[in-house]
Amino acid sequence: MRWIEAAALVVAVAMAGYAHSSSFSQIPQAPQLPQAPPIPPMSTPTASAQIQQRFLVVVDAAHGGNDIGARIGNGVLEKDITLGLSARLRSTLRAHGIEVVMTRQTDVSMPPLNRAETANHAQAAACLVIHATATGSGVHLFTSALGPTATARFLPWQTAQSAWVTQSLKLESEIDSALAHAEIPVSLGRASVEPMDSMTCPEVAVEMAPLVGGHVTEVRAITDASYQKSVVDAITAALEQWRSDWKQP
């Protein structure tokens, strides 16, 4: 049987050679396009799609365990408010197709180092550090007080956020606009609060305060479910907008 296989192979090669030299070769060749330079792996459509699919938000519920945070009043502790608000935010974001990683999901102590590690490992498109206070009115947005620097391969741990400060300010602006659209008073500021300076992602600290005084027509406690929902909805809208704008720095 071997000679039959060899003969078939010879016939096939001969037919292929004939086809190439006669009829097919007479078809005019399309002009050859200039050869594109080699594309780095991260710029290929497949890689871009992977980045789009990796749009992930880290939600850091501040405090926890022995670290109770602020006493909001009537026995309400900041650590409980931040955890509840973070869980609510996670549910809403997931309902809008945004992947979420939380630094803590229960009432446990977590050092700032571990929080930053979780956020940095996730390579998140946005990091939100959730706080609450009994002082002031509306929502306070804070970004790191570090000055912006260029992105580098290696960054000092204590000032790693400096390479993302410009992105963080843009993210803060998105959230600010969404909260203002929801008629929630907003204040913007820069602050030095752990673990913000060590996070390598666009990050904003969202500190929720009661609605009191100023231009507020209705006093609403920080524990008010409808008030929390309006804040969460506004942040979700801002992150949806951020998803369409965001590019990996």
């Binding site: 600010d176 100023g214 231009h215």
Partner: peptide
């Protein structure tokens, strides 16, 4: 000098 800006009134157009 980078202190927080005054809060915008609720419903303010930006």
């Amino acid at each position: 000098e980078q202190r927080p800006s005054p809060a915008m009134p609720a419903g303010a157009v930006r």
